[in-house]
Design a binder for these strands. Structure first.
Lengths: 148, 148
DNA sequence: CCTAAAACCTACAGCGACTGGAGCTTCAAG
DNA sequence: CTTGAAGCTCCAGTCGCTGTAGGTTTTAGG
């Protein structure tokens, strides 16, 4: 059914990523090296297309590559405990929630800056004044390193 | 009032960043080169501390460095139009809103994955199944390149 | 069979915004 | 004057790709 020898460009189009991204995944050992033509061009099969699709889907959900690697490994051995995959997903959900919370507080601070404007010259500008003086902030919006 | 010759480590502590970050800002021309001791160590004054604090605050609000550079330039010349600063802040607010929207849809997808679990073995795992088959998604969560 | 264009190849540099380390020198307190 | 903390420069690494240069292979049409 699935085509037996898909060239890299067609594969890239079919999963919605760039050709280089696929080669990159191969380079870091996320995708197995495919068969090559006599002229050394990559040719993929349906199984590899599905694997790549899995990877891309996980990446779109914000899973960092190490997590994707774990998820891939889990999906390969069907006897493992589902709890592991759940744990990874739960951690990702928590990370997403943290990022949303942080961005929400940034949003309200930015809105405050923008709505409380009074002067139209820089020296009276609320945006600049707020940046210059942290004490003008309502909440503390402390940045947290976010993956992905 | 302000100390007249702050060494880099104290400055870093006072604004909550790393020493290397300050040196990096100097390297890319965001902070002016400070005076040096006879032994070539950096010594900062209060004005530079305020400038750095401004930069850090803007960064915490997610402004990318080019935007920070613009905001700094605006704050230096008090006669400019406040509309420029407002525009930069508004664009940042829009970017934050876009990121929140994207993360919210990721969150609901992750929650769907986690709550509809049925098996406790990988082969019945909803998390893995969802990743493997994009068709199981309710919405399309298409990643958008986000700055910062 | 031949040609031309599209697609492929490798290798490496660059992005943003830092961060970490090696290997050395200088400063400040006691 | 000693000693240990803090400073210095230079360079490499992070993450997840993306872009480019300069060449080769494939494929469709004539």
């Amino acid at each position: 059914m699935g085509e037996l020898s898909i060239p890299i460009g067609k594969l890239a189009r079919s999963v919605g990523c760039k050709v280089q991204t696929i080669r990159y995944y191969e380079q870091i050992g996320l995708l197995p090296p495919p068969v090559r033509t006599a002229g050394a061009q990559r040719r993929y099969g349906e199984a590899q297309r599905q694997k790549l699709s899995f990877i891309r889907h996980a990446r779109e959900l914000g899973f960092p590559l190490p997590a994707v690697r774990e998820l891939l490994a889990l999906s390969d051995e069907g006897d493992s405990d589902c709890a592991k995959a759940d744990g990874i997903a739960r951690r990702q959900l928590e990370a997403v929630n943290r990022r949303i919370a942080m961005l929400s507080s940034l949003r309200s601070e930015l809105e405050r800056m923008l709505h409380h404007r009074h002067g139209h010259r820089i020296r009276d500008c609320r945006v600049i004044a707020t940046l210059a003086d942290h004490a003008l902030c309502s909440q503390d919006h402390h940045a947290e390193r976010a993956e992905s």
